[in-house]
Simulated scan of single mutants.
Amino acid sequence: MRPYRWIVKQWLLSVATGGPTTSNDGGTTVYMMIRISAAALLVALAAMVAIGLPRDAQAQTQIAPGTPRLSSFEPSTGLAAGGTKVTLIGSEFVVGAYVDFGGVPATDVVVVSDSRITVTAPPNQRGPTFVMVTNPDGKFGTSSAVFFTYQEAVTSTTFPLIQAVTPASGSQDGGTTITIVGSRFVAGATLTVSSNLATNVKFINEGMLTAVTPANAPGPASIKVTNPDGQVGTTRSVFDFMYGTERNPAAAAAIATPTPTPAALAPVVKLPVAGIGLMVFSGGNNVELLRVSGCPQATAAFWASDGLGAFVTYVPGTTITAVNAAWNAMFPTSLAANTPLIARCA
Rank of each mutant, 00 (worst) to 15 (best):
R2N: 08
R5G: 01
W6K: 09
W6P: 02
W6A: 10
I7S: 07
I7D: 02
L13K: 15
L13S: 15
T17M: 04
T17Y: 11
G19L: 09
T21K: 12
T22Y: 03
D25K: 11
Y31K: 14
M33D: 15
R35S: 15
I36C: 09
A38P: 03
A39L: 13
V43Y: 10
V43G: 04
A44C: 12
D56C: 00
T61W: 05
I63G: 01
A64C: 00
P65A: 11
G66D: 00
R69A: 05
L70D: 02
S71W: 01
S72Y: 07
E74I: 09
P75H: 06
K85A: 15
G90M: 00
F93Y: 14
V95F: 03
V99K: 01
D108S: 10
D108P: 02
D108L: 10
V110L: 04
S115N: 11
R116L: 13
V119P: 03
T120P: 03
T120N: 02
P123A: 13
P128M: 07
T134S: 01
T134K: 03
K139G: 03
F148E: 02
E152W: 08
A153M: 09
T157I: 15
T157V: 15
L161A: 14
L161K: 06
S169N: 09
G170A: 08
D173F: 13
G174S: 04
T176Y: 01
F185A: 01
A187D: 15
L197E: 14
A198T: 07
F203E: 03
F203N: 06
F203M: 08
E206T: 14
L209S: 08
T210N: 11
V212E: 12
T213P: 11
N216K: 11
P218H: 05
P220M: 10
K224S: 14
K224C: 06
P228V: 15
G230S: 13
V232E: 12
V232N: 04
V232Q: 11
T235I: 15
M242H: 04
Y243A: 09
G244I: 08
N248T: 05
N248M: 00
A250M: 14
I255H: 06
P260G: 00
V268R: 09
V269G: 03
V273C: 00
A274N: 12
A274G: 10
G275K: 06
G277T: 10
F281C: 04
N285H: 02
V287S: 13
L289V: 07
G294D: 05
A298Y: 05
W303N: 07
A304G: 06
S305E: 14
G307K: 01
F311P: 02
V312R: 07
T313M: 08
T313W: 03
V315H: 00
G317D: 05
T319H: 07
T321I: 14
A325D: 13
A326C: 02
W327S: 00
L335Q: 06
I342P: 05
A343H: 04
R344V: 00
C345Y: 03
